[in-house]
Design a binder for these strands. Structure first.
Lengths: 243, 243
DNA sequence: GAAGTGATCTGGTCTGACCACTTGACCTCT
DNA sequence: AGAGGTCAAGTGGTCAGACCAGATCACTTC
């Protein structure tokens, strides 16, 4: 019994979490348009049946994310998240209400295809001694696994090491944000990504180019690795948009 | 009197803000190493002479930023921000304690040089009708201004429109994050960036390429625009590191 | 020694009060 | 009429203290 299911550890969202999630969803979905004013904290507390501190915590976190502006003495207003939110918002845009947003997915894959090769090139340029081993370990783990989903995880580990090698804090944080968006969508993307994640030799080639310290070769190898699945997804979206 | 000074609107940080800023600084500076446990909320409230809700708000915001992990029943622990923080953290890394962090600045300029041309190319590919006018307005404003700092702001407005034209939410949010990091450093970078921001014709050329709908030309034009200042800064850093 | 168990840490949540700021209606003097 | 001052009401900001709930670990018990 229990099958193969790993029994998720019971998502026990805290009250402020719940409130945060709910209002963020409303903003992202556009039901709360930019410029709109939120009900007062007391009112929200009353309506949602929670205490005011819980509301406050949620609103402050939204303010930090750039989704609302809260000013003492005045009502809290919704901001235009496309204008003011940072890359950390991406996860909530990619999977609103559990469904993959295709236009967001498109832009994420575009960004990945553009940034991946650059990071690989930087890694080739500055890679330290330990990197070769780390890359090899990640590829072996990837190879030893069959499941498309866990293979994607191993691929992420591989890239994680590449980003380490690139030694650029901006690209590092960028990767973290993209990964945070990508990770919850692993299953939804399993089919599309299987083709990429199965090409173990392509990973090997990339690792070799990086280890050899040849930026151009690494750039090319990364492109060869990332392009097919990206293109496949983009054309698939394109066809969906036609219909 | 009052000179030309715009009289900043008095930074009145709230108590939770203050606490947040202070602990974030400790984490970023490395004084609170990854794995370290924070004092309990009650203890922190006592030591910092503020209420517990204030502490909570700050800690929850830190958790959202990926800087700490807070679990009920156990102490709050510091996470490795290089591993878990998103791009939104960049501003606090670029200007810790008011001074520019050169290695962070290097990676930001690297990222800018890499992403800028791509965004320009995308804009050329998908630009709508209104873009040409917006770009022109931004360039005119830039041209009409003399101050290197405000010129940088106009340049940001210009890029803002380019990013709009690229029509990619991932790149949009990425730009927002980079801009948020860049903006507070405008003055510190004024000297280095003056050379770039004075080259009005380069902006014109880029705008033309985008408006013409020629991605390759736009890519090249953007590189021509961004590369000199980037290179100048990188070699400057390099020389500083030698000394 | 291993399993249970409870004291005591930790964060999670609520209540209700008061402070500080913004706004806008209203009032007043010019 | 218009410019300025005043004040009530609504909003977020902050606090104190209490109690709930999960995690830990030393201690008991078998």
């Amino acid at each position: 019994m229990l099958g193969g299911m790993p029994l998720q550890p019971v998502a026990r969202r805290s009250v402020p979490d719940e409130v945060f999630e709910q209002i963020v969803a409303d903003v992202v979905r556009g039901e709360l348009a930019p410029g709109a004013t939120l009900p007062s904290e007391r009112r929200l507390a009353e309506v949602l049946r929670v205490s005011r501190p819980a509301i406050r915590e949620a609103l402050q976190r939204m303010a930090q994310a750039g989704l609302v502006e809260v000013r003492q003495g005045d009502a809290t207003t919704v901001r235009d998240f496309r204008r003011h939110a940072g890359l950390d918002l991406l996860p909530r845009l990619l999977l609103p209400r559990g469904e993959l947003d295709l236009s967001v997915a498109r832009s994420v894959l575009e960004a990945r295809l553009h940034v991946g090769p650059k990071v690989a090139a930087l890694a080739a340029e500055r890679a330290g001694a330990g990197l070769a081993g780390d890359l090899d370990t990640a590829i072996s783990a990837l190879e030893a696994d069959d499941d498309p989903v866990t293979r994607q995880r191993h691929a992420l580990t591989f890239w994680d090491h590449v980003v380490d090698g690139a030694d650029s804090i901006a690209f590092r944080l960028m990767f973290n944000s993209l990964r945070a968006a990508y990770e919850p969508a692993l299953e939804a993307l399993a089919t599309v990504m299987a083709a990429e994640v199965n090409r173990v030799p392509a990973y090997r080639a990339l690792a070799t180019a990086i280890t050899a310290g040849t930026p151009d070769a690494a750039h090319t190898a990364a492109e060869h690795l990332l392009k097919p699945a990206t293109d496949a997804f983009l054309t698939a979206i394109h066809q969906l948009e036609q219909a």
